[in-house]
């Protein structure tokens, strides 16, 4: 029960912080037989997208 809760919390934090995206990307590459880029390059790429991201924060 507790182990499941901890696992759930870990899953949630990884998802919401965006860390899980890297795993998803690598799985996708593995499935399609592509060579994934390095973690550093991947995060640079995401940061470049975020630069033009228009989402606001509310009052």
């Amino acid at each position: 029960m507790i182990a499941r809760a901890v696992e759930g919390l870990r899953w949630y934090l990884r998802e919401i912080s965006g860390e899980a995206r890297w795993d998803a990307y690598r799985e996708e590459c593995a499935r399609e037989g592509r060579q994934p880029m390095s973690r550093r390059e991947y995060e640079r790429h995401r940061a470049a997208h975020r630069e033009l991201d228009q989402r606001g924060r509310c009052c």
Binding site: S17, G18, E19, W22, R39, Y42, E43, R44, A47
Partner: peptide, 14 residues
């Protein structure tokens, strides 16, 4: 830290 030291480690740096 996220850009140069350990890219992508969001939870750790938070």
């Amino acid at each position: 830290y996220l850009r140069y030291l350990r890219p992508g480690k969001v939870m750790e740096v938070t």
